[in-house]
Design a protein around this nucleic acid. Structure first.
Lengths: 184, 184
DNA sequence: CTAATTTCTTAATCTACATTAAGACATTCG
DNA sequence: CGAATGTCTTAATGTAGATTAAGAAATTAG
């Protein structure tokens, strides 16, 4: 048990190879053996899969200070299912997941390392998303998205928001119309 | 960077307070401030939420050697949304999440600590679940469940499987009938 | 053991969203 | 700049699964 409350956070912004990528650049494609991760210094990435019918499903958006990595591919040593694409001109730090070294411990006052906290937050977000995908209406999920990521609204096309929510653009348009008309 | 390949895994089975609980016991209720986690030595737990319409949504099952904890509640210091219930007579180790101390680091040969590996596997599973909830049919999700957790089939009532899959029991019955009839 | 309760299945009807189609407008490309 | 392409919206039609209802069988409770 490490009782030292002073952690040295990972300096994500200087961990690997700095890259400037323009909008539309594919940083990762499905089928690749992917041990790389991407930290967003500036810009916006998305991670997505394409299903058997050719439909795109956005798994996550990653604005500044976010980290994109395919944990499943890394932990199972399998080719990734995910594409990673820049949806704005971006500045990213690309690094190997093996570069990471963190002490997962609690201080006396209950603090945990910020990077482990980041990992646990990832789990918390995914937990919520699973439950909402099972129990909430598409509208409720959109409303939750608006509350949770207000800064993304002007940066992400509605079509992609729909893809992230697991609904069609038409459904999202319909929802937005109802919200404008103050329908229940 | 710790280059020592010999980790001391957490001895979950002896970490906190041993409890014998009978089937139906509620270990945790929504609204509780929950910092506890439960390690299953023997038996089976489920973690679930109840939505505004009173409908139960099972977030996870936890058979032997599994760990149940509400990361979201812990990380956000908010009351939990989740119930935790024993669905078999069970033997569990109950402990505080602050008890955990692990070194998240990689050895020279790329190994990571088994507990961090466990955490990353949790993320991988949730990743997959999110994508499938967005892109797969209910049948595909059931088939994936059968492949992934074959040992649960005889221990968990079909009604609960349906709840875990985010579908109704009627839908699951319909799917099973089609599979029996070899329909596409 | 019997009565009560739960589980599972079936089928008819309903519904939230998907699919298809297309127009208006905005953005990108050459 | 004009043409091509993409985005967003709208509406009609279709569909996978939800809801409602109920019977048969299994399990639980007293």
């Amino acid at each position: 048990m490490n009782n030292n409350t002073e952690y040295t956070p990972i300096d994500w912004a200087n961990l690997g190879t700095l890259k400037f990528v323009s909008k539309g650049t594919l940083l990762q494609e499905e089928g690749m053996k992917s041990t790389k991760s991407f930290y967003v210094k500036k810009g916006l990435l998305r991670s997505y899969t394409i299903d058997d019918n050719g439909k795109i499903h956005i798994f996550m958006f990653a604005p500044e200070a976010w980290l994109v990595s395919d944990v499943a591919s890394y932990i199972n040593s399998k080719p990734t299912d995910f594409f990673v694409e820049a949806i704005e001109d971006s500045e990213i730090m690309e690094f190997e997941m093996t570069s990471i070294s963190v002490d997962f411990s609690h201080s006396e006052d209950g603090k945990i390392h910020p990077e482990i906290s980041k990992l646990l937050r990832r789990i918390a977000v995914l937990q919520k998303r699973v439950i909402m995908l099972m129990s909430a209406t598409a509208r409720e999920r959109y409303e939750h998205f608006l509350e949770t990521y207000p800064q993304l609204i002007n940066r992400v096309p509605l079509k992609m928001v729909a893809s992230y929510l697991g609904i069609t653009p038409e459904a999202l348009s319909s929802i937005r119309r109802k919200m404008r008309n103050k329908e229940i």
